[in-house]
Amino acid sequence: MAYWGAAVLIGCALLTDIRSMRIPNMLCAAAFVIALLYGGIASGGEGLLASLIGAVAGIAPMLAMYAARGIGAGDVKLFGALGAWLGTQQVLNVMLYSILYAGAIGLLLMAACRMWGWPERLLNREGYADVDPEQRRRPVRFPFMLAVAPAAITCWYML
């Protein structure tokens, strides 16, 4: 059941992150509360404690990436909610694979931007023709959920 809760959370976050480059606070908060309730009901105090520890394990490393401006605050909260659903080991696995997938996606996007220039225009959602070359060198952003979703699938496939 916990994997289904995490899958629903990831699916909803993927849709909103692709559409608006944001993960709603209400989504993360609701998923977190439901995960705590599920942990408490399914396994009592031990389950509730495991959910809380998983949430901390999801938030703590992501705060460092947020401080380095590598991800948004919604991603930090998302991993806290995922940690509450999945527990410490699984959320760390999803996190590791997410970072690896994000690195691969970033490298592909950088190469495509250098070769053709079109992904930058699409990803930054701004005009391209009127921009001077120095402004074109801004970092290319993409929804982190494009890396989190395949990372979760990879982790669950390996179970």
Rank of each mutant, 00 (worst) to 15 (best):
L122W: 15
L122H: 11
G106Q: 04
P119A: 06
P133Y: 07
D132T: 03
R121N: 05
L123T: 04
N93F: 10
I105E: 03
D130P: 03
G127H: 00
S98T: 12
E134I: 06
P133V: 07
R125N: 12
P119Q: 04
Q90H: 12
D130H: 05
V91Q: 04
D130T: 05
N124I: 05
A112M: 10
L100N: 08
A104I: 15
L123Y: 09
Y101I: 12
G103D: 07
I105D: 09
L122T: 04
L96N: 03
M95W: 11
R121S: 15
V91C: 02
R121F: 10
Q89F: 12
N124F: 00
W116Y: 11
L107V: 14
W118V: 11
W116C: 09
P133C: 01
V94A: 11
G127T: 05
G106Y: 00
N124C: 10
A104W: 07
L107Q: 10
A112S: 11
L123I: 00
L96R: 05
V131W: 04
I99H: 03
L108H: 02
I105L: 14
R125F: 11
W118P: 09
M110N: 06
D132H: 04
A111V: 14
D130G: 11
L100Q: 06
A102S: 15
R121H: 12
W116P: 01
L100V: 14
E126Y: 01
V94C: 10
L92R: 02
L100H: 01
Q89W: 11
N124H: 06
R125Q: 14
L92Y: 01
G103S: 12
R125C: 12
M115A: 13
L100G: 09
G117K: 03
C113R: 02
V94H: 02
G127V: 05
V131H: 05
M95R: 09
L122E: 10
A112H: 01
Q90W: 08
D132F: 06
R114F: 12
G103Q: 07
M110Y: 10
R125T: 09
L123R: 04
A111E: 03
A104D: 04
W118Q: 01
V94F: 10
V91R: 05
M115L: 15
L109K: 06
E134V: 07
Y97N: 04
A129H: 00
